[in-house]
Amino acid sequence: MSDLSKRRLKTWIRLLGVTRAAENRLRDYLRREHGTTLPRFDVMAALWRRREGVTMSELSRMLLVSNGNATAVVDRLETDGMVRREAEDDDRRRIRVRLTPGGLAAFETMAVGHEAEVDAIFAELTETDLDRLREILARAGKNEAGRSE
């Protein structure tokens, strides 16, 4: 193994550690402050971005999870009155999921705190650091996206 290869491996381990620590902090924040979970927040965020609603298949693709996982989260959100399912007019078999007015308000409240937590997680990074990091991650993503399986 070359020195550069070892450095890449150590970088991957560091990146994974930072990601897991940040995710754990956000999970804890959402549980403590809003009585919710990160998957529920993620579903609500996806639906907030697509106010017209999405099909379950679209939601699964957006979140990179299985249809079963997305369905389980949506079921709980629907029970809590945060989302609703609606059959499409032109094809009653296709169901769109969207935030309810209460779900929209709840998400927007959670999103403010979530942003503040993310800001605190990255508080030690300057604007220049963030710009460099985004550029580096974009390059790394392009390299991965270009791979063929």
Results as ranks from 00 to 15, higher is better:
S5F: 09
S5A: 14
K6E: 12
K6C: 02
R7G: 05
R7W: 00
R8E: 08
L9N: 11
L9C: 05
T11K: 10
W12I: 15
I13C: 06
V18S: 12
R20L: 15
R20K: 13
R20F: 11
A22P: 01
E23Y: 03
N24A: 15
R25K: 14
R27K: 15
D28Y: 10
Y29L: 15
H34G: 05
H34I: 06
T36A: 07
P39F: 03
F41C: 03
F41I: 03
V43Y: 01
V43C: 05
M44N: 01
M44Q: 10
A45P: 00
A46Q: 07
W48Q: 15
R49H: 13
R50H: 14
R51P: 11
G53R: 01
T55F: 02
T55I: 10
M56D: 04
S57I: 08
S57E: 11
R61I: 01
L63Y: 01
V65A: 04
N67S: 13
T71W: 02
V73D: 05
V74A: 13
V74P: 00
T79R: 14
G81R: 00
V83Y: 03
R85E: 10
E86R: 13
E86Y: 04
A87Q: 11
A87M: 04
D89K: 13
D90Y: 10
R92T: 10
I95Y: 01
I95E: 07
I95R: 11
I95T: 14
I95M: 12
R98D: 04
T100K: 07
T100H: 06
P101L: 01
G102M: 01
G103R: 05
A106S: 10
E108D: 11
E108A: 11
M110W: 12
A111H: 12
A111F: 09
A111Y: 06
G113L: 06
G113Q: 05
E115K: 10
E115H: 11
E115T: 08
E115A: 09
D119L: 11
A120D: 14
I121N: 03
I121V: 14
I121Q: 13
A123Y: 00
E124K: 11
E124H: 11
L125H: 08
T126C: 04
E127I: 06
T128Y: 01
D129M: 02
R132E: 13
L133F: 04
R134T: 12
R134Q: 10
R134K: 12
A138L: 10
R139H: 09
R139A: 12
R139P: 00
A140W: 00
G141W: 07
K142S: 14
E144G: 06
A145R: 13
R147G: 05
